[in-house]
Computed example of a mutant assay.
Amino acid sequence: MIGIGFVYCVAGSFFATCAILGLADRRWANTLFHGLLATSFFAGDRIGDLSNGVLVLALVAIATSGRMRRGETAEAAAPHGPLLALALVIPAVALGGTFLFKQMPALVDSRQATLIALATGVLLALALCWAVLRRTPLEGVRAGRRLLDEIGWAAVMPQLLASLGAVFALAGVGEVVGGLVGQAIPAGSVLGAAIAYGLGMALFTIVMGNAFAAFPVMAAAVGIPLLVRQYGGDPAPVAAIGMLAGFCGTLLTPMAANFNIVPAALLELEDRYGVIRAQVATALPLLLFNILLLWWVVR
């Protein structure tokens, strides 16, 4: 059966190739950083918790050392039409594959259908680039490495922050927050629970920089015990709308560096927080809408 290991293999192969290219360029810090990332994808489930923790600390040490350098400059771009069409192959395959793979439980792990479809779309897009643009898959990896060089250490922030959310959940932060929220919400108030859940998702995301990190905490604090168990809400829309509320917080925080700070740097904006300021007018009304939608769905 094709499972999450397939996705890890694709991601690990990309970072391993980046490490080899960095070694050829004698960019030692980049080589070690990408090599450790490849190791985490290839062998993270076999090296144990302690070794994974040491690996993460090593990644942080390399990222903060200031020794990671930019590499080769961009090559001439392909014509915009074919390039855009080929780029759209990835989301198209991810969407279609999600529905298709869920109907093939004997072949594909249905729980990981979306990630497997996404990885399949990436491989298919690389193959089509080779056939249509006459560009080898290695050139696609080189382009990806150039983007990694521009983003730098912020590329791994979502992965690390999502892990932080899991640590907070295991440490019982959700239960503590739930106790405080339960004292503040009027008994039987679905609207109060919806506000606490939606606003809490946004605020925790602002602090932690990632909605995936905030979700385990707020789901354990409000989403599951109040909106689902006490008020009978459907877990699927409660979870989905909660994540959307968290993404509103993503639009408002410099902690989401790969979304808000890196684009400002790449665009050479004078205002480092210009992207965030432009997103406020979208984030706040959208957060209000998500809270009201959550209230309507649960009540």
Rank of each mutant, 00 (worst) to 15 (best):
F215A: 05
L191K: 01
R26K: 15
A77E: 04
G96S: 05
T17S: 14
P137Q: 09
L227R: 11
I261D: 09
T136F: 13
L170E: 11
V122G: 08
A19V: 08
D45E: 11
V238D: 11
W295C: 11
A125L: 02
D45F: 13
L126I: 06
R272G: 07
I2T: 04
I241G: 10
L59V: 10
I2R: 00
I47T: 00
G188R: 03
D45V: 02
G96P: 10
G274Y: 15
I20K: 10
L118H: 09
A117R: 06
R27N: 11
T136A: 12
R229S: 11
E150S: 06
R27T: 04
M1A: 07
G3W: 05
A221R: 04
G140H: 02
T98N: 14
T73W: 10
T253N: 08
V167N: 05
G22W: 02
I185Y: 05
Q183H: 08
G188Q: 10
L252P: 15
A240R: 08
Q230D: 03
V280I: 15
I206K: 01
V60L: 10
A264M: 03
L227K: 10
L37K: 01
A171T: 05
L147S: 05
I47W: 09
L83F: 15
R70W: 01
L88Y: 15
I291V: 13
G172Q: 03
V108W: 08
Y273I: 13
G274H: 14
M201S: 07
Y231R: 05
P79K: 13
S51D: 04
P82K: 08
G71V: 12
M68L: 14
L267R: 07
T114S: 14
A166G: 02
I62H: 12
L118R: 05
F168D: 00
A77R: 04
A117K: 10
A19L: 08
M218V: 04
G198K: 04
A106G: 08
A169I: 06
G44C: 01
F42W: 03
G198P: 02
T31P: 03
G81D: 03
A154E: 14
I151V: 12
S110F: 09
C18N: 11
A78N: 06
Y197W: 05
L107M: 14
G53P: 06
A265K: 15
G209Y: 04
D234K: 08
L267D: 03
G71M: 04
G165K: 01
I151S: 02
A11Y: 13
G12W: 01
A220I: 08
A76L: 07
R299N: 13
Y197Q: 09
L128E: 00
M208V: 13
F99Y: 11
V217T: 09
A194C: 05
S189E: 15
R134F: 03
L126C: 13
V280R: 14
G22R: 02
A221Y: 12
P91W: 05
L191W: 13
L124W: 11
N210R: 01
G35N: 00
T205I: 03
A19K: 02
V217P: 00
D271R: 14
A196D: 07
A11K: 02
G209K: 01
L287N: 06
Y197H: 07
F168R: 00
F14M: 13
P82N: 02
P82F: 12
G165I: 01
G53I: 00
A19H: 06
Q183A: 13
A76V: 09
